[in-house]
């Protein structure tokens, strides 16, 4: 039994990692006053380019690099629309989600029009940390994971430091509260926002890449399954704080791991039914959590509003 629970918690760390990376990325950008709904499409591009890169070069790390570059390009396109052209952030985000979905579907079918479903021959395997991974219980859960998990765990305090202890973070948060005042104080609003978007692109692209390079060895246009939107809910529940996002992401990762776990645990006809029913769990939990915890959530004052230089 104890092994099963350790297995569940170790899976939780893996499923959480995608959400940790994405919600921390979104936290950075929302602190600068931009509501980026295109995070779903950004993650999809990361997964798609990660898969293509790894499939054609045979090198998983080149795949990861492609995923990150794809993530940066997608967030910069969002930046072009909402920072440079000042378009509606909600609609621009949705537009990019549709656009990336169409592009990935089109080019995936175009590239692999014939033959069997393409798959990667290997995945990025766990990298056990010497000594630490030998600790009973905690070792296999925390220290026998892929590099993504370590990056995600380290990035939470790192981004916290960046946001709350550096001048970049101070400027970014000032922009998030009121971009016009920040502009009058001499802060280069657009430049700081682009920098935040690039950081988000790296993190979310990596999260997408992780889906194809270390969790599933195949690509499907539905692979992200609203994880981007769950990440946005986590940002609210974590009160726009990377440490809060880390905690929230682990809770959601647990619900996802639970539905995978039940599928393997119970044998027989009940298993498929239970597993399918539990697949609604992360989404329902998100709604209920927002209903309870979203009430007094107060984000950056300027979140989502356009910024026009006089």
């Amino acid at each position: 039994m104890i092994e099963l629970i350790i297995g569940l918690l170790a899976t939780t760390m893996a499923t959480s990692t995608v959400l940790i990376l994405a919600s921390i990325g979104e936290t950075i950008v929302e602190r600068g006053g931009l509501l980026n709904l295109s995070i779903e499409g950004t993650m999809l591009i990361g997964a798609f380019l990660g898969f293509l890169g790894a499939y054609f070069t045979g090198n998983l790390w080149l795949g990861l690099l492609m995923a990150i570059i794809g993530g940066i390009i997608t967030t910069l396109i969002f930046g072009l629309l909402v920072v440079k052209l000042n378009l509606n952030q909600v609609i621009s985000g949705l537009a990019i989600n549709l656009l990336t979905y169409g592009l990935c579907l089109y080019f995936f079918r175009y590239t692999f029009s014939q033959g069997a479903m393409p798959y990667l021959k290997e995945l990025i395997y766990p990298l056990p940390i010497p000594f630490l991974s030998q600790i009973p219980i905690i070792g296999p859960i925390l220290f026998n994971q892929t590099i993504f998990v370590y990056i995600a765990l380290i990035s939470a305090p790192f981004i916290y430091y960046l946001l709350f202890r550096t001048s970049f973070g101070l400027k970014l948060r000032a922009i998030g509260e009121d971009p016009s005042i920040a502009y009058r104080l001499g802060i280069n609003v657009n430049k700081i926002r682009y920098m935040a978007l690039i950081l988000e692109g790296i993190l979310v692209g990596m999260a997408g890449g992780m889906l194809c390079l270390s969790m599933f060895n195949v690509f499907d246009v539905r692979i992200t399954g609203a994880k981007g939107f769950i990440a946005i809910s986590i940002v609210i529940l974590g009160r726009w704080n990377p440490i809060g996002a880390l905690g929230g992401a682990i809770i959601f990762g647990f619900t996802e791991a639970l539905s995978l776990w039940v599928g393997t645990l119970i044998i027989g006809p009940l298993s498929a039914s239970m597993s399918q029913l539990l697949s609604t769990l992360p989404y329902s939990v998100a709604i209920i959590a927002l209903l309870i915890g979203g009430r007094r959530a107060k984000g950056p004052a300027g979140l989502g509003s356009p910024f026009l230089k006089e």
Binding site: L87, L98, Y101, G102, L105
Partner: peptide
């Protein structure tokens, strides 16, 4: 031609 054109056009249309 592969599928996906329709979603692509819709995304571009919104922008």
């Amino acid at each position: 031609q592969p599928q996906g054109i329709v979603d692509f056009i819709q995304g571009v249309l919104i922008i």
